[in-house]
């Protein structure tokens, strides 16, 4: 230890020079990633995929017309499973269900209706509230997702969801699609085909495409923040109902004729 007035010894000077050199090295290494990223800009592939972050300008949702949904048809379920590489493990009581087809009967009138039930992409989602790690989250554009990198598989969200929309994966999976990572020990549910939503404008989720292919067109993808979209118009006219509206979750998936 020496004071400011004392003259440094020869070894101390050498140490200072060494530290200076180390400092310069540090600056160079810190700048290296920046330089690299500039260099990378030149050969960055243009894939036509949106590269800007999602914003709350849109709030994506589905409008499901149950009068067009046919009992016994499960095209949306198959479409979803094909899209996300979901196959049966042989244990059908633990198989993942991103969409379920439900048939309802009104006890008073006997009226039958059929509808697909999936993640309702709530604005105030109970699964997001209860998640201890923040893995269950809502994207800026209203899509509720599981960040499987931080999901610990506790399944609180599975219990919290009033729609039974979430599945836990019990067994190892090896044949994933590259755009739909899925694995043992994590929870998953409908992603509103987020990879398609991000890929291009006007992309429909697989369930909606499948439903249209079956000539039912009961599922319509739309933007709740766009006052001109069909889903917004249906909500405005009081036709598009929430399932369990008593919970005030402000769901992104709405049903007509329910």
């Amino acid at each position: 230890m020496y004071t400011a007035s004392s003259k440094p010894t020869k070894s101390q000077t050498a140490r200072r020079h060494f530290l200076k050199r180390l400092g310069v090295l540090g600056v160079v290494s810190a700048a290296a990633p920046v330089l690299l990223s500039v260099a990378r800009g030149a050969d960055k592939k243009s894939t036509g995929i949106k590269s800007d972050a999602v914003s709350s300008k849109h709030r994506w949702g589905l409008l499901i017309d149950t009068s067009k949904c046919a009992s016994g048809c499960d095209a949306c379920v198959r479409g979803c499973h094909a899209e996300h590489g979901i196959s049966s493990t042989g244990n059908d009581h633990t198989d993942a269900q991103w969409i379920r087809k439900i048939d309802l009967q009104d006890n008073l009138t006997g009226t039958l209706s059929s509808l697909p039930m999936m993640c309702q992409h709530c604005k105030t989602a109970p699964c997001v509230d209860v998640c201890p790690t923040g893995a269950s989250f809502k994207r800026a554009d209203g899509i509720v997702l599981v960040n499987k990198h931080t999901c610990i598989g506790c399944r609180y969200c599975v219990l919290a969801c009033p729609y039974k929309a979430r599945s836990f994966i019990h067994e190892p999976i090896t044949d994933q699609q590259s755009w739909a990572p899925r694995g043992k020990g994590t929870v998953e549910s409908c992603t509103l085909c987020v990879h398609r939503v991000d890929a291009e404008e006007d992309q429909q989720p697989a369930c909606a495409v499948a439903c249209t292919n079956e000539a039912h067109s009961a599922i319509l993808f739309g933007d709740l923040n766009d006052a001109e979209s069909e889903i917004s118009l249906a909500i405005e006219q009081g036709q598009a109902h929430e399932v369990r509206s008593d919970l005030h979750l402000n769901t992104g998936v709405r049903y007509i004729d329910l």
Binding site: T47, A199, V209
Partner: peptide
């Protein structure tokens, strides 16, 4: 890949 995702 992501470019032609969607096999509905």
């Amino acid at each position: 890949s992501v470019e032609n995702a969607g096999r509905a």
